[in-house]
Amino acid sequence: MVVVSWVLALAAVVSGFGVFRLNSMARVTFSLLVSFLAVAGLVLLLGLDYLSAVIVLMMVIEMVVMAVFMIMYMMNPAGLMPMAMYHNKAGAMTISVGTFVLLAAGILLVDWPERRGAPAPDPTFALGRSLMGEQMLTMMTLGITLFATIVATVVLSTGRGRYDRLGDDLDSATADDPLGGGVGR
């Protein structure tokens, strides 16, 4: 258990570092995926099997979607032309190393409290009970936020919607399209 947790922790950090070191976008995406899978493994080690499975499923799909967008928007998706895509590298490095040192100092210096209580026999059942019980407000907030995201992403990513074509009241007799189409154009 101890060895596995060290290996997974190291894998998570090293492959996370690889995300900003590798050249090819495919390798970058899979490096990030390896980092997520290692974290899922650590979460599994801690006894949260359901949440670990959720992380694995979500991240595999998310990275595949990410790869599609990479190819759409990156100037150098295959990494065939090595190029630097950084700005303010020294400043960013200083800030992130400083953040890590600060966090590590806190982690090592704080006198952590004793472990109180034991995990529920079935943590997943306890999570479900709590999401449908005292954490219902959290659950509903998440639901509303996800719905707002659906609306916002569709609005943002639609180039020409029906209001552009048919007017604000949707009562235009013919659609205002740049190119006519269909019969009788």
């Binding site: 996370g16 995300v19 970058v28 590590a104």
Partner: peptide, 28 residues
């Protein structure tokens, strides 16, 4: 051990978000 790896991941992510020019890499 767990918190130090979490801090490492957080710091690497912060470096990426601050230093990358591409919007996709920033989100990574």
């Amino acid at each position: 051990l767990f918190l130090l790896s979490a801090a490492g991941l957080f710091a690497i992510g912060l470096y990426g978000a601050l230093s990358q020019q591409s919007i996709v890499m920033l989100m990574m």
